[in-house]
């Protein structure tokens, strides 16, 4: 996927300050995040939407709610599994791996209806 632009300028919200670039790795490859960016946002800016592979069906998954509710965005951060990419800020040299855990939350969301 193509890289996504960072929206540096905004007619109402204004310009973003210059932020430091922070290197991190995702599945062994090195990328750059900007300071205070979540893993989900940094990966999207680098053109990566797939955060996880569904263990049963093998289908790819990305962030869905972006605010911590759906658990779709779980990745492994510095060997800790099931970390929500949408709530976790990238830190210097973070080692991130796509999630491979068995999910059940989508089913639960559907059942809640």
């Amino acid at each position: 996927m193509k890289k996504m632009t960072r929206l540096l300028d905004h007619p109402i919200l204004g310009k973003l300050d210059d932020r430091k670039a922070i290197p991190f790795t995702f599945d062994g490859k090195t990328y750059e995040a900007l300071e205070n960016e979540t893993i989900a946002a940094a990966l999207l800016a680098n053109g990566i939407r797939t955060l996880r592979i569904h263990e049963e069906s093998g289908t790819p998954r990305g962030f869905y709610c972006n605010i911590g509710h759906c658990m779709e965005c779980r990745v492994t951060v510095n060997d800790q599994a099931n970390v929500r990419a949408c709530l976790t800020v990238v830190e210097q040299c973070m080692v991130i791996a796509s999630g491979k855990q068995h999910p059940n939350i989508v089913k639960r969301m559907v059942e809640q209806q």
Binding site: M4, T5, L7, L8, A45, P60, G62, Y64
Partner: peptide, 25 residues
């Protein structure tokens, strides 16, 4: 709906106004 690139409308709001990353073209 589980394909990467499908998101809740609120997710797009947060990505755009809070994280300031383009959600797509």
């Amino acid at each position: 709906w589980t394909l990467p690139g499908v998101m809740s409308i609120g997710a797009a709001q947060v990505m755009t106004n809070v994280h300031r990353v383009q959600v797509g073209k």
